[in-house]
């Protein structure tokens, strides 16, 4: 076990954990941030996507010891009031079915919009192909990302 300081959603938090623990489980089990989901444990499905210095990464394979002082943002910290344009668009278009993968989808989409505020379908396909949705909400996800892009420009 080791004391590790993390910068999560703008706060400095301290945890006493096995340094090999993937960031995902530190968030879920130690910091009680359960919005980030476990799906595969090998960076194949994207359910665990969070931002590390603004980039979408898979937290299920990232040992907490390697995070250091890099800023982590989880779905709980994406917006203060839960009103990020993507969150609004997701609600407006009623994207979710079971909803389990959607936090990861939104985090991947948020990183995309940050570097590419007006993505094409092709850009979306490329950026979102690391996230699996078993319910098949893909067509609505694409629409929601376009809608959020439109909302952000206002």
């Amino acid at each position: 076990m080791a004391i590790i300081n993390l910068n999560v959603n703008g706060k400095t938090l301290s945890v006493d954990v096995d340094p090999s623990t993937p960031l995902l489980w530190v968030l879920r089990d130690h910091l009680n941030l359960v919005g980030t989901k476990f799906g595969c444990g090998m960076a194949q499905c994207g359910a665990c996507t969070v931002h590390l210095n603004g980039n979408a990464i898979r937290s299920c394979t990232l040992p907490v010891s390697s995070v250091k002082t890099n800023a982590i943002v989880t779905i709980e910290g994406l917006s203060e009031k839960g009103d990020h344009p993507l969150q609004q668009a997701w609600e407006e278009l009623d994207v979710s079915q079971c909803g389990y993968c959607q936090a990861g989808q939104i985090m991947s989409a948020a990183a995309l919009l940050k570097r590419n505020p007006k993505p094409t379908d092709q850009d979306i396909d490329n950026a979102m192909s690391g996230n699996i949705c078993r319910c098949g909400t893909h067509v609505r996800i694409r629409k929601a990302i376009h809608l959020a892009a439109k909302k952000s420009k206002k």
Binding site: T74, I75, E76, W90, Q102, A103
Partner: peptide, 8 residues
Amino acid sequence: DAHKIVTG
């Protein structure tokens, strides 16, 4: 649950 889902 739409809002709860998108806010984790």
